[in-house]
């Protein structure tokens, strides 16, 4: 299928005794954003590095826009833009010089990268800063330059390894707006790993990785529906009392803080019973309730289920 730009089949990779990636298969089509999530150390970065050919697989195959990286690594790499978790910029070089350097390293002739540079600098909002040294850019602008560098070769495939880690909320929102516009305008296949579940929610599909295995895959709404009707929001005072009463309820599987509220995960079919029971207990113990209701599960609720290993 030509529109499957990323095709990974049964990838495995071990480091010594540690199985970092175990039998992972996934496909990402043109115009899709695939979000890779999972606990720290689940193998997200290793998987991304296998996909871009920076690491060799022990077994399995990777094909990028139809090029098998084991046999056509050069052609395969030409298809990719890669933004590493801690990407490096030359701080003493200007924005434009960074782009030039990056383009030349990738073997692009000036007639290709020069017009492209103008286009992507305008796209990421750095057109007025071409002469500024990278070291003088704000954190958000560095982030945008990093993205511009990854886009200079007009990649059909974009691999982003936790691109917004350590980045403030404003920069994060701007970054995602750019990614979604890029998807509309150029239709690449994007694979992104992230610790932020609101970002995973913006993806076309999401894969959950745990101890190197891809244990579940689906659209955000498919994943959320796995625990539909089983998440209850609880807010009020004092929070310690609410948390204690909720945790001790026999039908409450899990209690987590979500900002100023608690999310309770309820045994299937018991939400209404729990709501009524908790309501009485909390009032009876002198607590004050602001909210006690069933809510639509968020992707973060689902993450917690998978991370716990509950099926």
């Amino acid at each position: 299928m030509p529109d499957k730009l990323i095709e990974a089949d049964d990838l495995s990779k071990a480091f010594g005794q540690t199985q970092a990636v175990v039998g992972v298969s996934l496909q990402v089509a043109s115009g899709e954003i695939y979000g890779l999530v999972g606990p720290d150390g689940a193998g997200k970065t290793t998987l991304l590095r296998l996909l871009c050919g920076a690491l060799h697989v022990d077994s399995g195959t990777v094909s990028l826009a139809g090029f098998d990286i084991a046999h056509h690594v050069e052609q395969a790499r030409e298809q990719i833009g890669y933004l590493a978790q801690r990407f490096s910029l030359y701080e003493e070089l200007t924005v434009m010089e960074n782009l030039k350097f990056f383009a030349e390293v990738r073997g692009l002739p000036a007639k290709d990268w020069l017009p492209r540079s103008q286009e992507i600098l305008t796209f990421v909002g750095l057109a007025d800063f071409t002469g500024r040294r990278a070291g003088q850019l704000s954190g958000g602008m560095k982030q945008k330059l990093g993205l511009a560098l990854a886009l200079v070769n007009r990649p059909r495939i974009l691999l982003l390894d936790e691109p917004t880690t350590g980045v403030d909320p404003l920069t994060r929102q701007d970054f995602w707006e750019l990614i979604i516009k890029l998807l509309r305008d150029e239709g690449p296949a994007i694979l992104v790993s992230t610790p932020y579940m609101d970002e995973a929610d913006r993806c076309t599909r999401v894969g959950f990785l745990r101890t190197g295995k891809l244990i579940r895959e689906g659209t955000p709404s498919e994943l959320r529906s796995l625990i539909l009707g089983r998440v209850v929001e609880l807010a009020g005072q004092p929070q310690s009392l609410l948390a204690r009463l909720a945790s001790s309820d026999e039908d409450v599987e899990n209690v987590q803080r979500f900002g100023s509220r608690l999310h309770l995960r309820i045994r299937a079919g018991q939400s209404e019973v729990v709501i009524q029971r908790l309501n009485e207990k909390i009032i009876g113990n002198g607590g004050k309730l602001d909210s006690l209701r069933m809510i639509e599960p968020q992707l973060e609720d689902v993450f917690i289920v998978f991370a716990e290993g509950v099926s």
């Binding site: 606990p39 720290d40 880690t165 350590g166 610790p195 579940m197 803080r257 917690i304 991370a307």
Partner: peptide, 10 residues
């Protein structure tokens, strides 16, 4: 907690 997953952050 920069770059830490949602469960580990909690």
């Amino acid at each position: 907690t920069s770059g830490v997953d949602p469960v580990a952050r909690r």
